[in-house]
Design a protein around this nucleic acid. Structure first.
Lengths: 305, 305
DNA sequence: TCGGTAATTCAATATTATTGAACAACGGAG
DNA sequence: CTCCGTTGTTCAATAATATTGAATTACCGA
């Protein structure tokens, strides 16, 4: 079946004649005849009642009805592709590590999608290593995670860094200190995330160096659950500022006295894909703008209370 | 946009490569390349990631998703047209006069549509003159009505005839007669349908000839309502047997003694359309078979009680 | 670096779409 | 009923384009 003939058929129906359709479509009259003839031959059935007043056959009516949807869908598809061309439409597969995926991303994506209603986004939440792998396999377009050095196949661009803060139960003896150092928490219980967590390694190094391992630890796999353990008084956690605030009642955040521990997050994508195109580029610009600034320091209001 | 290229694209995706698609579609490899190239050029955007392992671009994924519906719809349309070719599918616009439309037709059409689930039927209910007009204008495909002699433009084929019977109120003085003649109803009140009704003319002629107009008449526009007027004792009606039975309680049917009055119904269509094609032919055959026989006589059980 | 597979390029060829001119069918006006 | 204007068809010529094989290039994995 030929799309050109299909469109001609629809023009004939809406204009009520071969001649008018030919004129409007800039065809010779004979061209229109030929196209319809071919269409009818393919289908093996007459579509248009010839002679006399213009009229469709039964088959023609059914054909017109059904093909209308098809023509509309094709036009919609063409419009979509045209939107994609300028980045207004698209289907982005992004990845993100916790806590970005749960804390910052929902708000940002909500605003982004409101601005670009024809763009769809799927978010894969995993650690940096897993995301890198999926990027290389072409299963993701871009990811928000920490730096991953896999030669030249991936491109990383830092966007912001996040400090860690102590999250302390409200009634904990250390809660009264305005800041806490690692020395302070010797002989107290620390709550740690699971081994594959980004922060875990940095925290362990700090504990080893500064507390000489004189700290009891307990492992909680989820960062979100962690807050409730702190609230319950089970121990002190070291968490990203964005997790600590807004605070759960019953917990207080305290910045680290002495060494500052922070982790840098950024955009990771296949080197071949950079600079990003189309909708991904739009999302990237948006992320850059939304993520720049916050989380760099503890010297703002939200961390004080 | 070209459908051939669209199908090639889908084959490439499902088979995972230009080569395999070319082989399966009996194309040279270069043909496939050309088709995709042209498609991409038209859309202005790359669909397939070249080199390395086979992969779609973001645009390619969106395009594939959306065009899948289109390809399916086209296949469905082709299947429908193929069904139409053998009369298994279709869209029939039929007309019918009362009381056929209300009495016989519902049952017949229900059975017919169960047998041919892909056929759709619309029923236009009007008198013979109006139906003829719509047939000529091409707004109907066939009609069940009485003969209409409009030269050679229309074709009529008798299918069955229906006798008229007297419908008498149960407590009416004439209700005790097993049969009634026109002479019997002199000086009683007759209920007549409106002027454009099929039966009206025949009844008026009979009344004039046999009762010398010594009958009081009253006009009721609807045949269905008529039964209730009879039930209420307002007078005697002369109605088709199929209207009289099943009877409304409070009324009794009596056959005509002497002259038999009957009207012949049949299939009317444009002369140019006869013999009917496709789904219309199927329906016509079915109607013929279902309508043949019943309604010819009063000598069956249903008319006696 | 070197095969081997996979896709592209290009010029030649086959196919098919398009066209104008002459012709046929139809409907309405005289 | 005939004529005329409109509308669609036929057909052979022509324009456009789809397809192809052979040579070439790109790329993956060893």
């Amino acid at each position: 079946m030929d799309l050109k003939a299909l469109k001609t058929f629809h023009r004939i129906v809406s204009l009520g004649g071969f001649n008018r359709a030919a004129e409007e479509l800039n065809y010779a009259q004979s061209t229109v005849t030929m196209q319809i003839k071919k269409l009818e031959a393919e289908l093996g059935i007459l579509l248009i009642e010839r002679g006399k007043l213009f009229q469709l056959t039964e088959a023609g009516r059914v054909f017109h009805q059904q093909s209308t949807h098809i023509v509309k869908d094709i036009e919609h598809l063409e419009a979509t592709m045209s939107d994609m061309l300028v980045g207004e439409a698209g289907n982005i597969r992004m990845g993100a590590v916790e806590p970005i995926a749960s804390c910052q991303l929902p708000g940002i994506l909500d605003r982004f999608l409101s601005k670009y209603p024809k763009i769809r986004i799927s978010v894969d939440i995993a650690n940096t290593a897993a995301l890198s792998e999926r990027l290389l396999k072409g299963e993701l377009d871009l990811a928000l995670c920490s730096r991953q050095d896999i030669g030249t196949a991936l491109y990383f661009e830092p966007l912001f860094s996040e400090d860690l803060v102590f999250l302390v139960p409200e009634r904990h003896p250390l809660a009264s200190n305005p800041t806490l150092s690692f020395e302070d928490i010797k002989h107290h219980r620390m709550l740690l995330t699971s081994k594959n967590c980004l922060y875990r390694k940095k925290i362990e190094i700090a504990l080893q160096e500064r507390c000489e391992n004189q700290v009891e630890t307990m492992e909680i796999s989820s960062m979100a659950a962690m807050k409730h353990y702190v609230e319950g008084g089970l121990g002190i956690a070291l968490v990203p500022k964005s997790i600590a605030s807004p605070q759960l009642s019953g917990t207080v955040a305290r910045k680290i006295n002495g060494t500052r521990i922070s982790i840098t997050f950024g955009m990771l994508c296949k080197a071949a894909d950079y600079p990003l195109k189309l909708a991904c580029a739009k999302l990237y610009q948006y992320l850059k703008q939304e993520l720049a600034g916050p989380g760099d320091t503890l010297d703002d209001d939200s961390s004080r209370s």
